[in-house]
Simulated scan of single mutants.
Amino acid sequence: MNKPTLAAHESLEIHEALNFKTLCLAKSKLIQGIVFDPDLKALMQKDVEQSAQAIAELQAVYKNAPFQAPVPQNRPTPIVN
């Protein structure tokens, strides 16, 4: 049975969504280091977790793209824990 693939425009849209969610995740993680309100920090942590889950789901769909940009195996070291 043939593996279903995405059309070129669908692949590009998924790629754009992946880029957007990756930037959102990075911003939330960086901003957490300068936020002192515990409620806001908890909300941002929830956003980080949901963004990571969304990225994983988008990557699973992106595997069906007829072409892909390589995903690097090494990740940048976080500036703030």
Rank of each mutant, 00 (worst) to 15 (best):
D37N: 10
Q50Y: 04
E16P: 15
F36T: 12
E10P: 08
S51K: 04
N74M: 06
K3W: 14
N2C: 09
T5S: 10
P38E: 13
N2H: 14
Q50W: 03
V61S: 11
P78D: 07
N19K: 09
A8Q: 01
P76T: 01
L25N: 14
P72Y: 05
I55Q: 06
L58P: 05
L6N: 09
I34T: 03
Q50R: 05
D37T: 11
I31K: 09
K29D: 05
D47M: 08
F36Y: 11
K63C: 04
N81S: 02
A8D: 09
H15W: 14
P70A: 03
V80N: 13
K21Q: 15
V61N: 12
A8K: 11
A26V: 13
K41I: 09
I14M: 02
V61P: 06
Q53V: 04
P76H: 07
A42V: 00
L23K: 15
L40S: 07
F36V: 08
I14K: 14
D39M: 10
I31D: 09
D47Q: 06
I55F: 00
D37Q: 11
K63E: 09
Q53W: 00
P4K: 06
L58N: 01
A17C: 12
E16G: 15
P76F: 02
H9Y: 08
P70F: 01
Q53M: 00
E13C: 00
T5H: 13
Q59P: 07
T22N: 00
T77C: 05
L18C: 07
H9K: 00
I34C: 13
T77V: 04
L58T: 10
T22F: 09
V48T: 07
L40K: 10
A60D: 11
Q50H: 08
I79E: 11
F20Q: 00
I34D: 06
M44R: 12
Q68Y: 12
A65S: 11
A42M: 03
N74S: 12
A17L: 08
N2K: 14
I79Q: 02
